[in-house]
């Protein structure tokens, strides 16, 4: 069984990724974290490639297999974001989320054989979920920064505005990618790319609220009042992510699980 070898690949990859995060904080140069990180990716991809070859089809048919892709994608996108924007915490975060998926795969090996239901057997499944997880992280960070800004006062926090602007745009980029990939997937699976399913309704509300911030930012002078939009938008994001299942409108949603 190839899955019994997973623990070796997983431990080696995680070792390299955790060391890369440590190196980011400790070393001034980017060379060491780059090497560490890419080695981890190589080792992890090696396992996926082996699984692919042994299966004879892309490993996307069981829950365990999709978690493998999450583990890889989330660190890769976290890494690209770090390269572009230098957010060290994001590398730590994506490594942590990746580790959680890896540990689930190690602790619940019987789930490997549990198959995906037909609707989830799509190449869109993994990227759709991965970009959302990253979007939540960016928006969460933006919310913390906005609350510090609202609570504090004076020139000291001026640079927080720039940070919030940046995080919201990056987060919205991920959020929109998630929605659009979901739309492409829905067209293949259900015949329509948009049906105002409750999850879609709340995702729309969330994205629109962040759009209000981005547009209002260019005309409003009262920054403190404007900053209130960010925590409100995050609350709406939480409803879209976790709360939808509890709403009366969600009875027939395709997203309740």
């Amino acid at each position: 069984m190839i899955w019994s070898e997973f623990i070796y690949f997983a431990v080696i990859s995680l070792f390299f990724w955790v060391s890369a995060v440590a190196a980011i904080y400790l070393s001034k140069k980017k060379t060491l974290p780059n090497i560490m990180f890419l080695t981890g990716v190589f080792v992890f991809s090696l396992f996926i490639a082996r699984l692919w070859l042994t299966n004879g089809h892309p490993p996307l048919r069981t829950m365990g297999e999709t978690r493998l892709w999450y583990s890889l994608f989330i660190v890769v996108i976290g890494y690209i974001t770090w390269l572009r924007w230098n957010y060290k915490w994001l590398m730590g975060y994506s490594t942590l989320v990746s580790a959680v998926f890896i540990i689930i795969n190690l602790l619940k090996p019987e789930i490997h054989s549990a198959g995906l239901m037909p609707a989830l057997q799509s190449p869109w499944f993994v990227p759709h979920v991965t970009v959302y997880i990253l979007s939540y992280a960016m928006m969460g960070a933006a919310t913390i920064a906005s609350i510090i800004f609202i609570a504090g006062n004076g020139e000291k926090h001026k640079d927080l505005i720039g940070l919030v602007d940046n995080l919201v745009r990056i987060g919205l980029g991920f959020l929109l990618m998630g929605m659009l990939m979901g739309a492409l997937w829905a067209k293949e699976a259900w015949g329509d790319y948009w049906t105002w399913d409750p999850k879609e309704v709340w995702a729309f509300i969330t994205a629109a609220t962040y759009l209000v911030y981005i547009h209002l930012r260019r005309i409003t002078i009262n920054l403190k009042l404007l900053m209130w939009i960010i925590p409100v938008a995050f609350l709406l994001l939480m409803i879209a992510w976790l709360g939808v299942s509890y709403l009366p409108s969600a009875v027939n949603s395709i997203h309740t699980y």
Partner: peptide, 29 residues
């Protein structure tokens, strides 16, 4: 399902996807 406007819909979706990547790349600058 027949949707004669599916091609423009896809064009819009792919333009928005490219736009989302530029949103990520450009950030607040």
């Amino acid at each position: 399902v027949r949707d004669p406007w599916i091609i423009p819909a896809y064009i819009g979706i792919f333009m928005l996807l490219a736009g989302a990547v530029s949103l990520f790349w450009k950030g607040g600058r």
